[in-house]
């Protein structure tokens, strides 16, 4: 069944987009991530312009993280204090991100920046996660204990605050900075940023695993809602029809993914996720290096009359 996407301005097969939403939803449910870093590239791959893909995926991630956040809220696995401090940074970062997005688009360098950010971020995070997963797997083979967690320099920063539910005593400075960072890259790349945020919160901020995913989902939810709104107001690029199909596919797929994820061990899961992220990054890198089929592109700046 063909459907015309009003903003992306091209006809797509509804079932193809629905299946893509479900597949990404499955993966995101399995690993407990938003899945934006898979969804945006897939949309670009089927011919939707990177700008529309990034803007529309934001609302799709908002939907999936809202259903996730609701589940974690019921289990009291969200730290409201930590979430609000993160959000102070997140909202600022998102606004900065959308502004940068608009500037880059006017310069004609948006597609390049999206591709470059994907290469840098995904290959770095992917290889870190992959090697960490490998090391963890070897440790459990040898039966060795994981290295003891020690306090790092971050815990020496001023403006400390007590986060009751997470049972940590932490400076607000690194928390706000992390929020800004995630908001910024999320708005430019069309990702929720969960796959970067969760490791940062665990390894750098020492947030306990009981509250880390739920709290990161709140940040994702609010930054992505805000990004949707800003992209709609400034760039008019959010395709609501596309977003709705993705959401329906995504939230359904996520439920089955979550069940599948419970059957796989943590280390293996991290190894798989690392590999997946790495391969998306490499794909973008290859695309940048090989000669494009057509060196010319046209952009319409609006029809008069």
């Amino acid at each position: 069944m063909q459907l015309y996407l009003p903003i992306a301005d091209l006809p797509v097969n509804v079932f193809l987009v629905l299946a893509m939403g479900a597949a990404v939803g499955f993966v995101s449910g399995m690993f407990g991530i938003g899945g934006g870093f898979l969804m945006t590239p897939l949309l670009i791959f089927i011919g939707i312009t990177p700008a529309v893909a990034v803007a529309s995926v934001a609302s799709h991630i908002a939907a999936s993280s809202f259903s996730g956040a609701l589940a974690y809220w019921r289990r009291r696995a969200i730290d409201p204090a930590l979430a609000s401090v993160l959000l102070c940074g997140g909202v600022t970062g998102t606004a900065l991100g959308v502004w940068t997005f608009t500037q880059l688009r006017a310069l004609g360098q948006l597609d390049l920046m999206i591709a470059l950010s994907y290469v840098v971020l995904l290959t770095t995070v992917g290889s870190l996660m992959f090697s960490e997963g490998l090391r963890a797997l070897m440790r459990t083979r040898r039966g060795a204990l994981p290295p003891r967690r020690t306090h790092n320099w971050i815990h020496g920063l001023p403006l400390k605050m007590r986060f009751k539910r997470s049972k940590i005593y932490l400076s607000v400075i690194p928390v706000v900075i992390v929020g800004i960072l995630i908001g910024f890259i999320g708005a430019i790349m069309g990702i929720g940023g969960g796959f970067i945020l969760v490791p940062i919160m665990i390894y750098l901020l020492r947030v306990p695993t009981s509250t880390v995913i739920g709290t990161s989902m709140v940040l994702t939810l609010v930054t992505m809602l805000f990004a949707t709104l800003l992209h709609a107001v400034t760039n008019h690029l959010v395709d609501a029809v596309l977003a709705l199909i993705l959401m329906v596919g995504g939230v359904t797929g996520a439920q089955f993914g979550a069940r599948a994820g419970q059957k796989i061990r943590g280390e293996q899961l991290r190894l798989l996720l690392g590999l997946l992220i790495l391969s998306v990054g490499v794909r973008f890198a290859v695309e940048l290096v090989i000669r494009p089929e057509d060196l010319f592109t046209i952009r319409e700046l609006g029809v008069n009359g």
């Binding site: 799709h60 993280s65 809202f66």
Partner: peptide, 11 residues
């Protein structure tokens, strides 16, 4: 409206 739609779908 899009943001509300996202929240509704998630809910």
């Amino acid at each position: 409206v899009t943001a509300a739609m996202a929240l509704m779908t998630g809910w």
